[in-house]
Design a protein around this nucleic acid. Structure first.
Length: 105
DNA sequence: ATACTGACCACCA
DNA sequence: GTGGTGGCCAGTA
């Protein structure tokens, strides 16, 4: 029952934007951001993939047009290439990826 | 089995 | 801000 990834993505609400790494971490796979990316790349059509961006706030390569439109429609401030701010989620207020990784705590 | 690539991420220069 | 490097996991040749 590893569908945690999809569950997490499905649980995203309107205007909530998070990064691949965040999803992976929340799902219980810290550092497995690429798995999330690949998952969406192949079968994420049933999921709100547009609420997922890179850790830098960049939109998904190749889907920028769609994603920008979807996010803008949900009240998220986005430019041609990245998310500026979202009402909720990781990019609420500031879009600065935390460097809390590496080096065990 | 090795090697390369990818809807990624973080560190360092 | 950009560019290079290492790491991660899975798919494909």
């Amino acid at each position: 029952m590893q569908r945690r990834i999809t569950d997490v993505i499905r649980s995203l609400n309107q205007g909530e934007v998070v990064s691949y790494g965040d999803i992976a971490e929340v799902a219980g796979f810290p550092g497995r951001a690429r798995l999330v990316g690949r998952l969406l790349a192949v079968g994420g059509q049933d999921l709100p993939w547009w609420r997922v961006v890179t850790a830098s706030g960049r939109l998904i390569p190749g889907q920028e047009s769609r994603q920008r439109r979807m996010l803008a429609d949900e009240g998220v401030e986005v430019t041609l290439t990245r998310v500026v701010r979202s009402p909720s989620g990781r990019f609420a207020g500031q879009a600065s990826p935390s460097r809390s990784r590496r080096t065990d705590t």
